[in-house]
């Protein structure tokens, strides 16, 4: 593995336009090797488009993008050899069994057959798919398919693993299994870029998060820092009550009160800020929780429904 300070992916003014629509609007970012970086944003923010430019699937309209010092515009073949891609859509080969999917994919990377089979067996073991070795791909559950796609993405022992919404559509068990595997890969030093709109996923897996919206990076930082900076520590949630809102505003002038519909959310910078207030309203159904990335996200990108 490389030193952790090495910049593996570098984008400068990276832009992607589809006709008149600008999907990615002049973004700059760097990904260092061994890190897990998350692109977090609402639908249509430009996450997938960015990832697709990294693996040379979409040509760059403007700006610079390099992977391991190679230019995506001219050295796409070399770059594709260094990257493992786990796309959003299931594109496993339904004409082949589980093991054959890995073997055929390995051939696309010029991996000799014996070596391919060895790696395939190891990956099936790692992703707990050994029992499904000879099963037909169509017979796998959603979670198994996702894990097989991840196994396939690792067959060329990539320097960078791109995970485009790796857990979308999975049940909680499937999702946690995938998370565990991503964490293990991280520990092994694999550089990971993932896109997600699940906040807890970004929080659980990423060293650094790039919050994207309308094709721009609107904020970056470690998940904990972003939460601390934009939201604080505690969040109180309660059904709207005029008297309670007034009391909160009077007694805790530092907190931020947000009313939407019949719900109130109050954000405090300090732990334990709300204890006194709750005692005054014992019959209210109040929830106090830790601030999370979802709060940051909604704060930064607004509540408007996308698409």
């Amino acid at each position: 593995m490389m030193g952790s300070s090495e910049v593996l992916i570098k984008a400068r003014g990276l832009t992607k336009r589809f006709n008149s629509f600008t999907a990615v609007d002049g973004i700059d970012f760097e990904v260092c090797s061994g890190k897990c970086v998350g692109f977090l944003g609402p639908n249509g923010a430009g996450k997938t488009t960015t990832v697709r430019m990294i693996y040379c699937f979409l040509p760059v309209t403007d700006g610079e993008l390099t992977v391991a010092g190679l230019d995506v515009k001219t050295q796409d073949r070399q770059i594709k050899g260094l990257i493992g891609v786990c796309p959003q859509e299931d594109n496993l080969d339904p004409d082949f069994s589980v093991i054959k999917n890995l073997q055929v994919y390995a051939r696309y990377f010029d991996i000799p057959k014996q070596e391919a089979t060895k790696r395939a067996e190891e990956l099936l073991k790692f992703f707990a798919l050994e029992e499904k070795r000879n099963a037909h791909v169509e017979s796998l559950s959603g979670g198994m398919k996702r894990r097989l796609i991840m196994a396939r993405a690792l067959i060329n022992q990539p320097k960078v693993l791109l995970l485009d919404e790796p857990t979308t559509g999975l049940d909680p068990q499937g999702r946690h299994l995938v998370w565990d595997e991503i964490r293990t890969l991280r520990k092994q030093g694999v550089t990971i870029i993932l896109t997600t709109h699940y906040m807890e996923e970004a929080e659980a897996l990423c060293d650094r998060i790039l919050v994207v919206d309308n094709g721009k990076i609107i904020q970056t930082g470690a998940p904990k820092e972003l939460i601390k900076q934009y939201v604080g520590k505690d969040v109180l949630e309660v059904e709207y009550d005029e008297q309670m809102v007034q009391t909160l505003k009077q007694e805790l002038p530092d907190v931020e009160v947000e009313v939407f519909g019949d719900q109130v959310r109050v954000f405090a910078k300090q732990h334990g800020s709300f204890e006194q207030i709750i005692k005054q309203f014992p019959d209210k159904n109040v929830t106090i929780r830790n601030a999370n990335l979802e709060d940051v996200f909604l704060k930064l990108t607004g509540r408007r429904l996308r698409e």
């Binding site: 699937f57 594709k80 990257i83 796309p87 859509e89 594109n91 010029d110």
Partner: peptide
Amino acid sequence: FQKSFDAIIATPIS
């Protein structure tokens, strides 16, 4: 339907 071309294009094959 199978998106097989997309899968192959993500490898060194053009």
